[in-house]
Nucleic acid binder design. Structure first.
Lengths: 144, 144
DNA sequence: CTAGTTGTAACTATGATGGTTACATGTAAT
DNA sequence: ATTACATGTAACCATCATAGTTACAACTAG
């Protein structure tokens, strides 16, 4: 199991739009950097747009940021690209036997723990902004 | 995406072995409570055994706990049933374009953040033992 | 009207999941 | 020993998500 790379691609897209802000970030341009198909990029950009992170218009070349990158956390991107359903990071076996003590209580006992773990994950993602990522990229770039 | 229910089933198995400690927990018995196939249970028990959480012997009916449940955290179970690879909860797109500033630095910038988030998740699971789950089940049982 | 772009749908290959059946291996009791 | 019953695995299947690909309609600007 692994969380879809749509998430990392989404971050890549936002970072690149920023760094390429003087140019035009078409899906083809972005696809060249991510190294995938433009249609894949357009699909993800559509999700980012749906979350209000990006501005795009049919027929007009290029995507732009809809917010300041310091106002976009990785958690925002994570939600935008829909890689994990709310409260459903962990799947719980359904239909445990209600005639068994464990069977009829396991879900109620486990679910809150799973949700707490998922929240811990998401809170961690919420502590980092895409701007942090861009700054990190620039810094790494200047060092090497 | 969702983390395999092997995890919740693994917890169910350990809890039920405990609660049924005066009886014999065969794969068929456990399968009846989880509501799945005995072969599925045996596969998961094999993993729990590999992690030293459970004792089973070919030909001899029943699985037993190899440790005190208060010494088994949900993180131990999570590792045992191998639902998430180490440091690979999030997948990162491979082969980003090295000729692009973002492409050649995105992985290095993102991976530590992803690992931190995964660690937060796992730490949260490490705070709960299977004994806690069993106690919760018993409590819920007595209330209703 | 043309060229170029976005937005989508349809289709494919791949891999994980969860289940099922079957059977070899092993234990214990008669 | 033979029988009955468990475990340990392998093989196979249906289902689903992922990621990619192609194709094309809709739209904009020159």
């Amino acid at each position: 199991m692994s969380i879809s790379s749509r998430f990392s691609v989404g971050i890549h897209i936002l970072a690149l739009i920023e760094i390429n802000k003087n140019g035009t970030s078409t899906s083809e341009f972005l696809a060249g950097s991510v190294n995938t198909n433009p249609a894949v990029i357009r699909k993800i950009i559509g999700m980012l747009k749906g979350a209000g992170l990006v501005k795009v218009q049919p027929g007009i070349a290029g995507a732009e940021l809809a917010k300041n990158l310091s106002d976009i956390t990785l958690f925002d991107v994570y939600k935008a690209v829909n890689v994990v359903q709310e409260k459903e990071l962990f799947s719980v076996h359904d239909n445990p036997n209600p005639d068994c003590t464990v069977g009829r209580n396991i879900q109620a006992a486990i679910v809150p723990v799973f949700e707490a773990a998922q929240t811990a994950l998401e809170k961690s993602l919420g502590n980092v902004t895409v701007e942090d990522i861009v700054n990190d990229i620039i810094e790494k770039e200047n060092i090497s």
